[in-house]
Amino acid sequence: MTGQLVCHCQLVETDGHGLVLVDTGFGSRDVDDPYGRMSPLFVTMNRIRLDHRDTALEQVRNLGFSPRDVRHIVLTHLDFDHAGGLEDFPEAKVHVLRAEAEEAEVRQGFIHRRRYRPEQWDEVRDWRFYDPSGETWFGFNSVRDLDGLPPEILMVPLPGHTMGHAGIAIDLPEGWLLNAGDAYFYRHEMDEEPSCTPGLLAYQTLMEENRAMRLRNQERLRDLANDPSTNVRIFCSHDPVELEALQRLSTGWRPLYAESLPRSRYS
């Protein structure tokens, strides 16, 4: 028995800062050459289904924009299923935590060599690296004042899945929206009494770099998700039910607008 996962990206339309893409999912070149661009192990194990129509590039075009309109890409991390479309947007600045960039460059160990794929970003020329500093966000460390981005968008370091993993928080008129990336994989992990399917639990364990940090950050996110006074909506990168719920809501978000883009799926 198998389940279905998505690669959930966001497109944020800002006032005066162009389009901002949060993660890219798989890119057009991944569709053309999946085994050359990604680890055959993960392509086969995850039964990744790739289609040009599902790439962020085509989704941006379908919304009436040009790839050149995407001026910034903010990454939760550099795993192959989050950064594969970087080269589809050559005009964009790419924002990532410095710790993540350093881990991806070294690629030490069996999992690192397969999760980080330099083929997906070796043509990127405009990187912006950040260290946690400054004012906290609901008790979490944060990175504010991202270069060229409005103050409503910030990084929230959430190490554990990778050591440079981050959430991306967006301050919308309706409240905060937190893309928690791969800090968790299944919506019920955010319940007061959390649960997770055995397969996703095993996959998270396989991919974690620091178990104690990952579980601690899950706990902190869970507390935040269940505190109605904070007005924070949290979602992860791979839960299809969360994606569908956010797509239904996204059409009403103004003036800082966030569109949840459907992406290639795992099965």
Rank of each mutant, 00 (worst) to 15 (best):
T2I: 10
Q108D: 13
R49D: 12
V74C: 11
S250C: 15
P240N: 06
L261E: 01
W176I: 09
E87A: 10
Y184H: 12
S39E: 05
W127Y: 11
E208L: 04
E209D: 12
N62W: 10
M1K: 11
V156Y: 15
T205S: 11
I170R: 13
Q4M: 13
D88E: 10
M190E: 05
R115C: 11
W176K: 04
H52C: 12
R265M: 15
F185I: 07
Q247T: 00
D51A: 13
E192M: 14
E259H: 11
L50V: 09
S28I: 02
L158D: 09
G252S: 12
R37N: 10
T251R: 05
L215D: 13
T2D: 14
Q4W: 10
V6Q: 09
I111A: 11
Y266E: 01
G252T: 02
N210F: 09
R115S: 08
F26K: 02
E119W: 09
I168T: 12
L246G: 02
L200N: 04
L249R: 15
H161F: 15
A245G: 03
T55W: 13
F129R: 13
G84V: 00
E119K: 03
G148T: 05
G181A: 12
M163G: 04
D171Q: 14
R114E: 08
Y257T: 03
L57R: 08
I73A: 01
N231E: 01
A104G: 11
A101Q: 08
W127K: 12
P228W: 07
D239S: 06
R222W: 06
H77M: 00
L5K: 07
A104C: 04
L178C: 01
R187Y: 13
D223H: 08
E119A: 13
C236Y: 04
R29Y: 08
H82T: 04
G164E: 10
H8E: 05
S195L: 05
V74M: 12
L19A: 03
D131T: 07
M190S: 06
G181M: 09
Y116G: 04
A225K: 01
G84W: 04
F110V: 11
I111T: 06
I234S: 08
Y186N: 02
V156L: 07
P198M: 04
P240Q: 08
E208I: 00
G64N: 04
T44V: 04
L200D: 07
L200K: 07
T76D: 03
D33R: 10
R265G: 04
H188G: 00
I48G: 06
P159E: 09
P34D: 08
E58K: 09
Q10I: 01
C236W: 02
A183T: 10
Y130W: 06
D33P: 02
I168Q: 10
L41H: 14
G36Y: 11
G85D: 01
R220Y: 07
P34W: 04
C9Y: 00
R117V: 03
E152N: 11
R265D: 07
T136L: 09
Q108G: 00
E105S: 09
Q204P: 00
R49P: 04
A180P: 03
V96A: 14
S260R: 01
L177S: 09
R211T: 08
S142E: 07
E174H: 02
N179K: 05
G27Y: 10
Q59K: 15
S133Q: 12
Q10G: 05
R47E: 02
N226M: 06
N210W: 02
T44K: 14
A169Q: 01
P262S: 06
F110H: 10
H17N: 14
L221F: 03
